[in-house]
Nucleic acid binder design. Structure first.
Lengths: 156, 156
DNA sequence: GCATTTTCTTGAATGAATCAAGAATAGCCC
DNA sequence: GGGCTATTCTTGATTCATTCAAGAAAATGC
């Protein structure tokens, strides 16, 4: 397992360090987790690591294409290990939980704008907004845009 | 003009105040502008107004459905006046400028997820990422995710 | 006009994320 | 294996969009 992640790092021309292997492992084990959650997971795995190191590692991994960063409106940055398969996301308006949605048309980009305004389009990102099953039956009092509340569908 | 915006506010059961009319006007005149830009526009129009008032007004207008808030990853909140027509956006990865894209399939939601995971889907948001014409010919040195730089395609 | 409710002002606080400088370490050559 | 150099991590401060809080001001309904 660990050696797999080491190989991934090496193949991406990234130096292999304990924090990097731990962060990569954490992102694979906890899809859509935010930075703070990942810091907790990494520290539980290998002991104290500075938050700055986690930020640096996540940036390096994202730049290298080993993880993907997603950031729905009103949410902090989240990371996932599924890369390069053009899948999309459903985000709960109430608790902010994220679920994957496969592209209905396969791996190829499934969307083309009606008018690209001269932009060179590289990617079409789709975010479906709605209520997760849990929030449908047990509504959370406040909207996700209100701070000070924690999702009841916590990434484990 | 002003009376139109006043009517809009009244019809939304919002009290008519100078800051609200000015913010509504500013959003109509400067589509996709960020909060800071709007603060500048509003102050140029009606004199000193607290930034907190602008935040409050934008929240009220957004909640009332008079304006729409968009927030692409790595960007601050932006506001636009086109609401209810299900259009989407192209965002420049380099300078962050935003352009509108009409829904190719008309006003109805043009997307349905392959598996909604039990979520009640309310909206499909599409963000196309790419390079705007200006950044294609005059590349900006750094990515939008890097701070400390201002778009060369400033709103207004 | 006046009372009531909402909104705006003032000023402080929050929190994710970044910056900066020095210490530690991975990878490479001998 | 030992040392060199670039990269990475630690420590601690800082930034900045946004929010919180409490009181002053203004808008609507009677």
């Amino acid at each position: 397992m660990t050696s797999d992640y080491e190989s991934m790092l090496r193949e991406a021309s990234l130096r292999v360090t304990r924090p990097r292997v731990a962060v990569l492992t954490a992102v694979y084990d906890h899809p859509h987790a935010d930075t703070d959650t990942l810091i907790g997971v990494v520290r539980a795995a290998i002991g104290e690591v500075s938050h700055q190191a986690i930020y640096d590692v996540l940036r390096a991994l994202t730049t290298a294409g080993l993880v993907r960063r997603i950031q729905p409106a009103n949410s902090v940055a989240r990371y996932e290990s599924r890369v390069g398969d053009n899948h999309h996301h459903i985000v709960c308006r109430s608790c902010g939980v994220v679920a994957d949605v496969d592209c209905t048309v396969g791996d190829a980009p499934c969307l083309t704008p009606s008018d690209d305004h001269g932009f060179g389009i590289e990617e079409a990102e789709v975010i479906y907004w709605g209520l997760c099953p849990s929030c449908t039956t047990t509504p959370v009092s406040e909207d996700i845009s209100d701070p000070g509340k924690e999702s009841h569908v916590r990434q484990s």
